[in-house]
Design a protein around this nucleic acid. Structure first.
Length: 139
DNA sequence: GCCAACGTTGGC
DNA sequence: GCCAACGTTGGC
């Protein structure tokens, strides 16, 4: 089981939108590396939802329900995945906090700041649970 | 509003 | 195939 981080502009589509809908389709990704990461996702992988713009913070945890499939109604090379919200972080983790935490220094959030779909390591995920005071029960 | 970091496009 | 110009993302 792997971990990923998904960026979204909350005025376009937010963690709260996903929570309200109870399930969603993550589409509109227009970057080759991000698409490649989406294709690597397996059902059951965990997703951290990050808000760009004014908020710049990780808000919640979702899970992959449907692995990569071609975007509907388009003869395009781009893909989407299905996902379901699991729980919000008790305290959102801001970009500033991520940058100030040495154990998170290698996160793509910092090192490849424009990549909108990026892998997160188990250690990084665990640390994010700690600093967000989120009682995540693995497995 | 600016700009750094990329990615894409098109002329050559 | 190179690279300048341009567009986009997203932090500041």
């Amino acid at each position: 089981m792997k971990y990923w981080l998904l960026k979204t502009e909350p005025s376009t589509y937010s963690w709260d939108d996903l929570t309200r809908q109870k399930s969603g389709v993550w589409d509109g990704v227009r970057n080759a590396e991000a698409r490649n990461n989406m294709k690597l996702m397996k059902a059951g992988d965990l997703l951290l939802i990050y808000h760009t713009g004014n908020e710049k913070s990780i808000r919640g945890i979702a899970i992959v329900t449907t692995e990569a499939f071609p975007e509907p109604d388009e003869s395009s090379p781009w893909v989407a995945v299905g996902l379901k919200p699991l729980m919000p972080l008790s305290i959102p983790v801001s970009l500033t906090e991520v940058k100030s935490d040495p154990t998170l220094a290698d996160m793509s959030l910092i090192r490849m700041s424009r990549l909108s779909v990026q892998p997160v390591s188990q250690q990084e995920f665990n640390q994010l649970m700690v600093i967000s005071h989120t009682k995540w029960k693995a497995g």
